Computed example of a mutant assay.
Amino acid sequence: MDAPRPPEPVRQSADRPGDRSERRDTERRDLDLLVWDAPNIDMTLSSILGSRPASSDRPRFDAIARWFLAEAADHEVEGCVFTNVHPTSAVSLRGWIEALRNFGYAVFARPKVHPEDDVDDAMLQHIASRQASHRLRRVVVASGDGRNFLAPLEELHRAGVRVVVLSFAEVAGYAQESPLIEFVDLEDVPGAFQVSLGRTRLTALPPDGGWFRPTRPMRALLDEGAPLDHPHQHAPAAPREVDPLHGSAPAAAPHTEDAPAPAAPDVGEVGRVPAPQTPRARTA
């Protein structure tokens, strides 16, 4: 009877300590990621326009997707829209969400029951999850919320990820001031809007000049019943600086009797968004 063979010795791996992590890194696929903060973009758009946006005022997500894909090369791409759903808007948002999915976007929806039911944490968690599962090459964040996104996005840049903020120049000061983040104004994305938003963008004037349409009829002044002041009676206000951390302008100085404060804009909730000229980006 043959004697039992002794067990073979366990072969020790010849990998150096960092080899396994390097091999796992090479197995991860390149990814370009777009995350869209729908409540923030909608609120910002309402504030800029001074009223609830009409359908023609809202961004076209098919144009946003084409712009995003133009620089993705052969990387994997993922577009995600994060939104809140108020109990009264669940039915009206269904068509918008289905349109987004048809354009290739994944949609994360959270019930808006309490004021603190935001989507910012979910956006950051998703970015972190994709950073663990893929090699992030580019992350585009559509949000003007510097309070929640400035530090994490700068950390992504330090990790070798190209970071782009897609928002409006009036509120995304945190991205424009950071040397680590690129900024693209949403209205500079080709085809993103059907009509001009009529914003007062003095830093983006065409070489031959441009018009700013009135925000209300001139005869509305007569309906107010107040005396008409000469424009020269009021000195131009000092330019307001944008807070780079919070992504918004600081509070205005108290108004005087001869310079009444403007009424606060009516900011609407997230509504239906219809299906989506060279972007200006500030690089590090």
Rank of each mutant, 00 (worst) to 15 (best):
D258C: 06
R216M: 15
S56G: 09
R66T: 06
E170N: 06
L45F: 10
D118K: 04
L34S: 03
G210F: 09
R20P: 01
D19A: 15
A151P: 00
A175W: 05
D32A: 15
P190H: 08
A3Y: 01
Q194Y: 05
D2I: 10
T26S: 13
V164I: 14
R29T: 12
D185I: 02
L31C: 10
D145Q: 10
I127K: 04
E241K: 03
A38K: 09
L34M: 12
G210M: 11
A73P: 00
A264N: 04
P190A: 06
A238Q: 13
H230R: 10
R60D: 00
D118G: 01
P254A: 11
R23C: 03
I48S: 04
P6R: 09
A220F: 08
Q12S: 14
S178D: 00
A128H: 09
R29C: 07
T44D: 14
E187A: 12
V113M: 07
T200R: 14
V140L: 09
T278L: 14
T278Q: 13
P239L: 14
L153Q: 04
R29Q: 14
T283Q: 13
A122L: 08
G191L: 02
H114R: 13
E187W: 07
L124A: 02
L34V: 14
S21E: 15
A142E: 05
R28C: 03
V139C: 03
F68P: 02
A63N: 02
D185M: 05
A159S: 11
P262I: 12
L156V: 07
R135G: 04
H86Q: 10
V77P: 08
S46R: 08
P207T: 06
V165E: 02
S56C: 06
T283G: 13
L221E: 15
A128E: 13
T215Y: 10
V163N: 06
G271K: 06
V141T: 12
R147S: 15
R16H: 13
P260E: 03
R23P: 02
A151K: 12
L45K: 07
D2F: 12
R110C: 03
E27D: 08
L69M: 05
N84D: 01
P17N: 05
R138F: 04
P274H: 03
D266G: 01
G271N: 02
D258Y: 04
T200A: 15
D74H: 14
H232D: 12
A261V: 03
F103M: 15
A38V: 15
A109C: 11
H230V: 06
A263R: 14
L202H: 04
T215P: 03
M123F: 00
D74Y: 07
Q12N: 10
V141K: 02
R162A: 11
W211I: 15
P17C: 08
L124V: 04
F82R: 00
H114W: 01
V10R: 11
E71G: 13
